Amino acid sequence: RKEMTAACTPRRRIINLTSVLSLQEEINEQGHEVLREMLHNHSFVGCVNPQWALAQHQTKLYLLNTTKLSEELFYQILIYDFANFGVLRLSEPAPLFDLAMLALDSPESGWTEEDGPKEGLAEYIVEFLKKKAEMLADYFSLEIDEEGNLIGLPLLIDNYVPPLEGLPIFILRLATEVNWDEEKECFESLSKECAMFYSIRKQYISEESTLSGQQSEVPGSIPNSWKWTVEHIVYKALRSHILPPKHFTEDGNILQLANLPDLYKVFERC
């Protein structure tokens, strides 16, 4: 597991931080080997919608929660590849102030007048994250320049770009939802926020969305749709870069829909 690298990086740093090793061990302890084997050997059937997909393993048909699986995938990559990410360069710098204002204007932020003026909160978020810029760049390849612009994001899987519609809320939550006081809790909560931002979430995906850094293989055609990215990038990574937690067998994120021999018997009677 320590050699797990989802995106190509030129050289690998050895990380011996106790906090990170502890988080890696927790993933191992909570892992479910049968689910790992199923995901490793599954045959992708198709997307139901951005949140759900169908896959077959041996004779069984499964309904998989793409949102939760991708979130767990990105969390584990962030923990196992800690401080070893490439950088996704933004085509132009994104001012943190503008991103924070967009987030505060969104109902998702939960902002009320009692929280104070949005401009003041946005300025605080910019200054707060600028103070964390060195650590964010060093460990997470999340790059913020001296003017308070976001200029780079971590490359977690080759050819995958997170849904940038979720970027404003991500920046807001970096400042408000991460435990910045304790090292282990900081790395864990920061990785979880980043994983949620990178995950496939239906509120940020339309039929026209593209999450891939590449064009489709047909010359002159439109960019790959999110469905292509889910199948050929995300579920491909799920084959080798995730140890599913045991609770996925109990919380409805992986559901067995049918045993195909039983279905064949039904059709034979028709």
Rank of each mutant, 00 (worst) to 15 (best):
R269I: 14
P50N: 12
N149L: 10
D158I: 05
A122M: 01
E113M: 04
E231D: 11
S91V: 12
P107S: 07
G31I: 13
L17R: 02
V45C: 10
A122S: 10
K184D: 03
I171Y: 00
M38T: 08
S199C: 07
I15L: 08
N28W: 14
Y198D: 00
M101W: 15
V266S: 15
A237L: 14
P95T: 08
K130W: 15
S225E: 12
I169V: 09
A83N: 03
A237V: 12
E113A: 05
I77A: 14
I27C: 10
F44L: 09
A175F: 12
V34D: 07
A237S: 09
K236V: 13
K265Y: 14
E29N: 07
S240L: 08
L39H: 10
K131M: 13
G166Y: 13
T5P: 10
C270I: 15
E113K: 03
V161F: 02
K60H: 10
E25H: 12
V48T: 10
E185L: 06
K192Y: 12
G152I: 00
I242E: 15
Y204L: 10
D145N: 05
G86E: 11
E183A: 02
K132I: 01
R13L: 15
H247C: 05
L260T: 06
L61D: 00
F187H: 03
D251H: 09
S212T: 12
I254H: 11
R239A: 12
E231W: 05
E26C: 09
G86R: 10
L39R: 11
N28T: 13
A100G: 14
E119S: 09
R11W: 15
Y62I: 15
P163N: 04
Q214V: 10
S225G: 07
L64H: 12
S189G: 02
T9C: 11
K132N: 03
K131H: 09
L96A: 01
K265V: 12
S43Q: 06
I79N: 13
I151K: 03
Q30H: 05
K131V: 13
Q215V: 06
H42W: 14
D181P: 03
K132S: 05
G220H: 09
P223R: 06
T9I: 07
K192H: 10
L156H: 00
N179H: 05
L17W: 12
E182W: 15
N149H: 05
M196D: 03
R239W: 14
L21F: 05
T176M: 02
N149C: 09
H40K: 11
E185Y: 09
L155K: 05
L61K: 01
L96N: 00
Y264S: 03
G86A: 07
E146N: 04
L121A: 03
D251Q: 09
N16P: 11
S106L: 02
S216G: 07
L96K: 00
E33I: 13
G213K: 06
E268T: 08
V48W: 14
I14Q: 09
G86C: 12
M4E: 11
N159D: 07
L129F: 15
L211W: 06
P10Y: 12
L155C: 06
M101H: 04
L150E: 01
Y264C: 05
V234A: 13
S22H: 04
A6D: 11
K68R: 09
S19E: 06
L164A: 02
E182I: 08
L136S: 01
Y124E: 01
P50T: 07
F197K: 00
A175W: 12
A55K: 02
L61S: 02
R11N: 11
F170L: 12
N259R: 09
W52C: 05
E114C: 11
E188Y: 10
F197S: 00
L150Y: 00
F82K: 01
L136P: 00
L99S: 01
K118A: 15
F267N: 03
P107T: 08
Q24R: 04
E250Q: 12
E3D: 11
G120V: 15
L23V: 13
L88H: 07
L255A: 05
L174V: 02
P50L: 04
Y235H: 13
E33H: 13
V266I: 14
H232Q: 11
G110C: 02
I205N: 07
N179Q: 05
K131E: 14
L172N: 01
N224H: 10
L88Q: 03
K227S: 05
R36T: 12
L64P: 00
I15G: 08
E165P: 03
P219C: 09
T67Q: 09
E250K: 04
N259A: 06
W52Q: 09
V48K: 13
D181G: 02
M101A: 09
V20T: 11
Y160C: 01
D158P: 06
A7Y: 14
Y80H: 04
R11E: 12
S206F: 13
N65V: 00
E183I: 03
S109E: 10
G213D: 09
I79E: 15
I254Q: 02
S240K: 06
E26N: 07
I169S: 14
D181Y: 09
I27V: 04
Y124P: 01
W226N: 05
I79G: 14
A100K: 00
H57I: 05
L153F: 04
S141V: 07
T67K: 12
N253S: 07
N179V: 07
Q58T: 08
Q58V: 11
E188F: 10
G213P: 04
E3P: 13
G220K: 07
L156I: 05
N41Y: 07
G110N: 01
P219T: 05
S221C: 09
A237R: 11
K192T: 11
R201I: 07
L172I: 05
G213F: 08
K246T: 12
Y235N: 07
T229C: 08
T176V: 05
F187A: 09
V234Q: 01
E268F: 14
E177R: 01
